[in-house]
C-alpha cells in the first residue's frame, strides 16, 4: 500500500514516514501543497494523509481541488485546529476520516488501514479468501489457522492482492503501489517474488491472468 504524507513540519513528516514504513506502507512525503499536488498528479497512491495547515495554503483547499479534479483518493486529515467549525470545514472539503493533533500513532495506523480497507470494499478488518486470512491491524497472515512467515515485501504484495481481490492487479499497479518510487522493479523481480509467495501459500491462490496481471482467488475445494 502506498501512502502520501503531506505535512509541512519536517520532523513530524519524517516520523510519520518511519512509522508507516515500519508497518509495511510505502510512503512518499510532501512538505508543501504544491509538492503534494505534483505527486498526486504523477503517482498512484492508496491513501493520503493530509495536514490542514500547509505553508502554501490550506490543505482543505488542495483537497477540494483534487476532489473537483476527480481524484478519488481516500484521505485522512490531520488537524491541529480545535475549533469544530474549522475541523468540519476541513473535513467537508472531502476527507474520509480525521485525526486531531497530537494523535496516537496507533490510531493513525488504525484509521488509515480501516479507510483503505473500506475504500476497497472490505467492511471487516479481517480479510479472508479461502483458508487464507489477513489481519490488517496485526499484519498477520494465517493459512489454515496457522501463522504464515512472510518477508516484509511478500506481506506487502499479498496484502495488496488481498485488498484488491477478486479484481485483477496488473504488474504496473503492483510496481506503483508496493515498491518505493525510486526503486520500481522490472516485471521480472515481481514475477520472482510472486513465485515465492505462491510457493508459501501453496494451492492456486495466485492466478496469473495472461497479459493482464495477477488475481487472488479461493482455490476450488476439489483441488
Amino acid at each position: 500500500m502506498k501512502v502520501l504524507v503531506v505535512e509541512d513540519d519536517r520532523t513530524l513528516a519524517e516520523r510519520l514516514c518511519e512509522l508507516l514504513q515500519a508497518d509495511g506502507f510505502r510512503v512518499d512525503v510532501a512538505n508543501t501543497g504544491a509538492d503534494a499536488d505534483f505527486l498526486i498528479q504523477t503517482e498512484r497512491y492508496d491513501a493520503l494523509v493530509l495536514d490542514l495547515g500547509l505553508p502554501d495554503g490550506s490543505g482543505a483547499n488542495y483537497l477540494q481541488q483534487w476532489r473537483d479534479a476527480g481524484i478519488e483518493l481516500v484521505t485522512l486529515i490531520l488537524t491541529a485546529r480545535s475549533s469544530w467549525s474549522d475541523k468540519a470545514a476541513g473535513f467537508n472539503a472531502g476527507a474520509d476520516d480525521y485525526l486531531t493533533k497530537p494523535f496516537e500513532p496507533a490510531e493513525l495506523l488504525f484509521r488509515l488501514k480501516a479507510m483503505i480497507r473500506r475504500a476497497k470494499g472490505h467492511a471487516h478488518p479481517q480479510l479472508q479468501i479461502g483458508e487464507l486470512q489477513l489481519n490488517t491491524h496485526l499484519n498477520q497472515v494465517l493459512l489454515h489457522g496457522l501463522a504464515l512467515k512472510l518477508t516484509a515485501q511478500e506481506l506487502r504484495l499479498l496484502s495488496y492482492l488481498m485488498h484488491a481481490a477478486p479484481a485483477i492487479v496488473s504488474r504496473t499497479e503492483l510496481a506503483e503501489h508496493v515498491y518505493e518510487r525510486d526503486k520500481e522493479p522490472d516485471s521480472n523481480v515481481i514475477d520472482v517474488q510472486i513465485g515465492r509467495l505462491r510457493k508459501k501459500l501453496g494451492g492456486d491462490y495466485i492466478v496469473t491472468e495472461r497479459g493482464q496481471g495477477y488475481r487472488l482467488v479461493a482455490p476450488r475445494p476439489s483441488d
Binding site: D9, T11, L12, R15, L16, E18, L78, S82, K101, P102
Partner: peptide, 17 residues
C-alpha cells in the same frame, strides 16, 4: 489558538517515539 497549534505538532512528533 496559535500557541496551541504550534505546540500540537511537536507533541505529535513526541508521541511517535
Amino acid at each position: 489558538a496559535n500557541l496551541a497549534h504550534s505546540l500540537k505538532t511537536p507533541l505529535a512528533v513526541l508521541k511517535t517515539y
